[in-house]
């Protein structure tokens, strides 16, 4: 299946001259733990970065195109708190947001969408029970389904990981990206674990390869440290780029990055 897809990539890419006014998106990711936005400094210590609603509104004001909240629902005991937080965010925010982390069944998806989330990000659950992609797309539409894929490149081999990057699964990465699109996902959030935390930029070659292979949007994630990294990824066919640390640390504001991209000739939304 994979081989056939690789060949059709060439003929599909001839369509790419089609004009589009759709703008490359800059997405900010917020990790949430016990109702607060946190930043992992090392394996166990989490630093409190602030109130999710306040930070979300600040990023909207800075011109973020979307937000992603991860691990919001990781533990079941905190479920009511997590749902209330999602509702608080939806009450105040007027840009789209995705929630992910710990969604294990269709009921979880329903609960978070009902609470006001625009999309859910499915990762481990999508790998273990891929039918949930079809079920969610059927019940709520493809636009609600973001499949998050954690990939790690070691010795030129691409490994697919689950459980927050802790467990390697026996599944071919490119077959999985195809399958995810075929099952009805609306977007893929592609995190290059080998780039995460390096500050050396997104894995642009991989982003391009996936983006050309599948017929849904690809969000590049992992490795961004400056505005040039965004430019490089967008030039290599990323439909959107996601970053966390460089924005949370205050090193860069979203508007700085977007003004740079605009100055480089990209079609960028400045709020």
């Amino acid at each position: 299946m994979n081989n056939i897809k690789q060949e059709t990539t060439i003929s599909e890419s001839t369509d790419k001259h089609l004009t589009s006014q759709l703008m490359p998106r800059v997405i900010v990711c917020l990790d949430v733990d016990k109702g607060r936005v946190v930043k992992g400094t090392n394996f166990k210590q989490l630093r409190d970065m602030g109130d999710p609603v306040e930070l979300a509104l600040d990023y909207e004001a800075q011109g973020a195109d979307e937000l992603v909240f991860l691990d919001i629902s990781a533990s079941n005991e905190n479920r009511p708190t997590a749902l209330k937080l999602v509702t608080d965010i939806a009450t105040h925010l007027s840009i789209p947001f995705t929630v992910g982390g710990g969604l294990k069944k269709l009921d979880d998806v329903k609960a978070f969408l009902d609470a006001g989330a625009d999309k859910v990000a499915l990762n481990t659950t999508a790998v273990l029970q891929p039918d949930i992609i079809n079920q969610t797309a059927l019940a709520y539409g493809s636009q609600c389904v973001v499949v998050a894929i954690d990939v790690n490149k070691q010795k030129e081999q691409l490994g697919l990981y689950i459980n927050g990057g802790r467990k390697l699964v026996d599944k071919n990465f490119f077959e999985w990206t195809d399958e995810v699109a075929d099952r009805g996902a609306g977007e893929i959030l592609l995190t290059a674990m080998h780039k995460d935390g390096t500050g050396s930029g997104f894995d642009t070659a991989l982003t391009r390869q996936v983006s050309e292979q599948i017929s849904i949007q690809v969000i590049a994630s992992g490795g961004a440290k400056n505005e040039e990294h965004f430019l490089q990824a967008f030039q290599q066919k990323a439909d959107a780029c996601l970053a966390a640390g460089m924005f949370h640390s205050g090193e860069y504001s979203v508007i700085q990055v977007k003004e740079y991209l605009k100055a480089q000739g990209l079609n960028i939304r400045l709020s």
Partner: peptide, 28 residues
């Protein structure tokens, strides 16, 4: 008629009556 569907994201408006400010589209 575009290789990637759904269309997801912001696009500006061409309009004589409304500002051209980008708005958020999600549609096939």
């Amino acid at each position: 008629n575009f290789p990637k569907k759904p269309m997801v994201g912001w696009a500006p408006l061409t309009s004589e009556q409304w500002p051209s400010s980008p708005v958020y589209f999600v549609n096939s």
